[in-house]
Structures are given as structure tokens and as C-alpha cells.
Design a protein around this nucleic acid. Structure first.
Lengths: 113, 113
DNA sequence: CAATCACATAGAGGAATTTCAATACGTCGA
DNA sequence: TCGACGTATTGAAATTCCTCTATGTGATTG
């Protein structure tokens, strides 16, 4: 399961196409490479394949062979763990002012806008 | 307050020196540029200045003039908001399996290891 | 005002990244 | 086994990024 590194995680997310791939896999579930390519239309198959490789190196996606095809899926657990790592690194500075849970409520994902 | 973009936020964090600067500012609070340079020892002053510019463009740090010096500080609110944005984008996929709050408890910042 | 201090900006070299066309590899069906 | 299909890899061009030295800018001091 690859050692986790905030920097390389962010680097992997620092590309629009890769973020779009992750989001696509999140909403559609397991997908074939060609279907991902088709869903974008803007990038060649080798380009998508390269991005998938980067994402896989960070364990953000998984892949399995199914006959001729290879199916990619979001590695939800690891994605969430990495996001949590980021949060832990940069958002738990002023402990005592508010608990992490409180800060999540204030600025986090389920904050009431 | 700059429009927020997951990709450029991650790109800003996709560099070790920049992550180190943020962490330094988090633990030490407001700092002069030269003190940041000194704290690293490994990077030139213009290099640090460049990274600070990148971080400021993403509103991850603030700066104010104090005489000859310029003081940089972590923009805690925005950092947390961006982390929350990331979480919201990639960690709230399978709604229904567990609530966002539950997933935070399972994999999030304050998860028991 | 001149010198100095603290920092920003300009410019350049080199490394890394993104992307594509071409090609190689692995699998299945005939 | 041969051809076709789906995907990975290679190699190269274009762009972006990181870092440095050199220099510019703004503020203080003498």
C-alpha cells in the first residue's frame, strides 16, 4: 500500500485531467480505459493511460484485468485517508480554539454555508 | 478573496518547500521572509519569495508590511476551507453508506487510528 | 540625500511535466 | 496460430516549474 506523502498526493491532484478522472470514477464506478477516454474526448488514450498510472502510483485508483480490458476504480479509502492527512497537517494548528470536529463543522465538508 | 480552485490549490501544495513554509508559519505564527529563509537554510531568498508569492496567489498566506520588513502568516481559514473543498469533492462519493460525519470519523482527521 | 536593509522582480538554465503519434504487449475469437 | 481489440510503453516536442544570480524597489537611518 505505498507510503503516504502529502506532497506527492497533492502533486497527483494538481492536474485538472486527473481530478476529472477521479471524479468520473467516483460517480460512474469502475470503468474501462476506453470509456474514460471517450468520456473526455479531449485527451488521447496514451495520455489518459499515463494519468491513470500516476493516480495508481499514489494508490488513488485500483485496476484489475477483465479479459482484454482493464477496469479502473476509485480507491475511496485511500483518497479519504489522504484528504484526512492534509487536514491533519494543516488544519489542526490552533488546537484549543476549537476541536478538529468543530473546525470541520465550521469550514469542513459538511459546514452549513 | 480569489475564486477557489481545487486544482490550483493542490498545485500550490504540490511542492515540498511550500508545504514546509505553511507548516512553519502554522507553528511559529507570523514570520519575516528572512527568518523563513534562515529556518530552511537550503533555499535562497528569491526562491522563498517566489514560493510565498505562489502561496499568496492561492490565499493560503497573508502578508503585511511592518517598516522595512514584510510579515507573512498562514491564512488558516482559507487553508481549512480548501482542505474541506477537497474532502467534499472526493470523499462524499458513496452517500448513503455512511454520513459525511461518519466518514470523517472513519477516515478523517480525527479518526482513531 | 546617500547608504543600507529587507524584500520583490527579472531573466536564464535545467529539470520535470504534459501531450501526442508510433509501437509494443497481452488477450480473445476464429 | 493469426488477426483484431484494448491498453501500456516509448520517444520526442512543447510547455511549465524550480532554482539561482543579478538587479530593482520601498522604507529606515545617518
Amino acid at each position: 500500500m505505498k507510503e503516504m506523502d502529502c506532497v506527492s498526493f497533492c502533486r497527483a491532484l494538481g492536474d485538472e485531467t486527473r481530478q476529472d478522472i477521479l471524479q468520473l470514477l467516483q460517480t460512474r464506478g469502475e470503468m474501462r480505459v476506453n470509456d474514460i477516454v471517450a468520456a473526455f474526448g479531449r485527451s488521447s488514450q496514451p495520455t489518459i493511460s499515463h494519468h491513470l498510472k500516476v493516480l495508481k502510483q499514489e494508490s488513488l485508483v485500483t485496476s484489475r484485468r477483465a479479459g482484454k480490458e482493464i477496469l479502473y476504480a476509485l480507491n475511496q479509502n485511500n483518497v479519504e485517508e489522504c484528504c484526512g492527512m492534509l487536514w491533519a497537517k494543516f488544519a489542526e494548528g490552533k488546537a484549543g480554539l476549537s476541536s478538529p470536529a468543530n473546525r470541520l463543522a465550521e469550514h469542513g465538508p459538511n459546514a452549513r454555508s
